[in-house]
Design a protein around this nucleic acid. Structure first.
Lengths: 348, 348
DNA sequence: GTTAGCACTCTCGTTAATTGAGTGCTAAAA
DNA sequence: TTTTAGCACTCAATTAACGAGAGTGCTAAC
């Protein structure tokens, strides 16, 4: 499928893609010959372009327009043609780290990094919360707020904090409460969230009921929250720079823009999008390669971030297929590194 | 400024506004005569329209277009012409309450109500978090997560929960921790947040330092969070139904749309918008009446919501001046009632 | 005070003409 | 054999012209 192209074809393909990234419109042989030093005439370029089209790297929106890169073209560009100056924006890393080092709430860090990434790339950025399935519960505690209301606090080793207010119809004595707390600590803390399934919680409930005559009420609410808060599909996705979409000429079409914005409004969709990306370190999905139908005219550049070397979440950028890949790739790399560091620090 | 209009003028003005709300385009005398039973000829209507224009209730986009309502026209409509069938959508209230009664996390309730309101009105809804200045702190607690990391939990009587992870360079003994907790409870709980200013916290710090040889570190972080979390201007604003803007023909203009979406991206702006609304129960700001420049072509319908009769937050709708006021007003009323109830319940 | 009639204005949508960028092909040059 | 120049052709996009339609303001009659 991926043939080796001769050097001239490579040069021409690269030039077309770079030009198209700038202009967002079809590129003709003439423009190309003028702007890039290819040392051949437009006619030759035309021939090469025809070849590249036959091979599937280019497309023609209509006869007598120039060519635009196809998904396959972008793919080739990303895999083969980008010079590796994209590894890292140098000193930057330290500066940003400094800037954000007093952000210690995990949620803040995440949404801050989403904003940062979108600012750097001028595309919309998305970051998913640390995945719960590989996290452990590091703290469970129920606090008394008032006679009939409690606060349940759950903390994972990824530093994610979840809380819920629970109202009871009866007062819970301090003795009972501290008993429950000890019990839950013992049974739940330092376990993988994935282990804490329905069955296990049910078991706990029975056990607790035999020891204390406790109404179902508390427990029911307790694990409603539990399952809700940490269920696999339900992680939050933070967005940054939604309005950058508006600057992309491909979204000058109102219908398309509408579709896109509606999409970004739906959290489940975002989840699907960002989680449909396989586990590799940096993944790039171009156009039709995307699983989610509605973004088949977009590209994703997504990296995984880590807490103490455990993969926990995704951070990435979504934009038109005509994307400034080198810059975006380097930014996503940088920011995912920073995110990993910050979040590892924050979660102790 | 607000003259009394004769009955026929009133009827015509109302008809024009209602028609314009539906069609979003200028209304001519002919259409009006046909669609509404006004029992006069187009010519008469033309004369009346000319009068209404002179009085400032109508505008003409250009000669030989129909008329559209001016801000003043809408204002008159809202104040005088809406029949009071807008008080309440009947059985609805109970249903929604039932639907949401198991939502007990305040943040969830708020964002749920934002979504609900936007679904009902098909405009963008905004809800501000309970204002902190009139809330009391009902619970302060520091929990140990690991040797050198703590979790600070703050709960207000409005049910708002805030937490922050604090990392220390030294280990804090259990004795010291429980001492601090008692101390903070005593000094802080059930106080108005407004009282907990820099000066007061400073005093506490000194007092605590004389009793325990505690590094500054903890306290510094502690009240960073404190001031950050509950500062007056910094309440969160939840949005619902952002994408409904796209359905309004007045935002078919890309430039305008862009401006609007950018605006909604900026939380400070949202704060400014929703907090610029005076304290009355239901406020309506039409076009130029808005303080924030960028929404001078929009209308706001905003209600206050309450926790146990104390005003704490705002909930409202933003849309084009051509807004279905009766329906929106009733929806905002209903939802703000529900929100008050739910949130009062949730916060015990 | 109301209405009919009429000339006038302005927008909007359609069609037609023009422009210009770009192609593919052929034949000559290298 | 490869490259290039030349030329006829295509098609989208812009502009101009035009007619239709909606609406107005004014005047004169009812």
């Amino acid at each position: 499928m991926v043939e080796e192209l001769d050097p001239r074809k490579k040069r021409i393909l690269r030039a077309i893609i770079q030009e198209h990234i700038i202009s967002a419109s079809p590129i003709g042989s003439r423009t190309l010959a003028k702007k890039y030093n290819l040392d051949v005439s437009p006619a030759t370029i035309r021939n090469e372009m025809a070849d590249l089209e036959d091979l599937g790297y280019l497309e023609q929106p209509h006869t007598s327009a120039g060519r635009i890169p196809s998904d396959k073209g972008y793919r080739y560009y990303v895999d083969e043609l980008i010079r590796d100056n994209s590894r890292k924006a140098p000193g930057m890393l330290n500066n940003i780290e400094d800037l954000y080092q007093d952000l210690q709430d995990v949620q803040d860090i995440i949404s801050g990094m989403a904003k940062m990434l979108s600012n750097m790339t001028h595309y919309t950025a998305m970051v998913s919360e640390p995945k719960s399935q590989v996290s452990r519960l590091s703290k469970v505690e129920i606090m008394q707020l008032a006679d009939n209301s409690l606060l349940l606090v759950l903390v994972t080793d990824a530093g994610m904090v979840n809380n819920k207010i629970i109202n009871l119809d009866q007062k819970l004595s301090a003795r009972k409460l501290s008993y429950i707390n000890r019990f839950l600590s013992e049974k739940l803390e330092s376990r993988l969230l994935a282990e804490l399934n329905h069955a296990y919680l049910n078991e706990l409930e029975k056990e607790l009921l035999t020891r204390l005559d406790l109404s179902f009420e508390l427990f029911k609410q307790f694990y409603n929250e539990f399952e809700g808060a940490f269920e696999p599909g339900g992680v939050k996705v933070y967005l940054g720079g939604t309005s950058y979409i508006l600057e992309q000429p491909e979204f000058n079409d109102l219908a398309r823009l509408k579709k896109m914005l509606k999409l970004l409004d739906q959290e489940e969709m975002l989840n699907k999008i960002i989680n449909s990306i396989s586990g590799s370190d940096l993944a790039i999905k171009i156009g039709q390669e995307n699983e989610v139908e509605d973004i088949r005219n977009c590209s994703l550049v997504v990296a995984t971030y880590y807490i103490s070397n455990r993969a926990v979440g995704k951070i990435g950028v979504i934009g038109p297929t005509r994307m400034e890949y080198p810059r975006v790739i380097s930014s996503v790399n940088v920011i995912s590194d920073i995110l990993s560091k910050l979040i590892s620090k924050a979660s102790g």
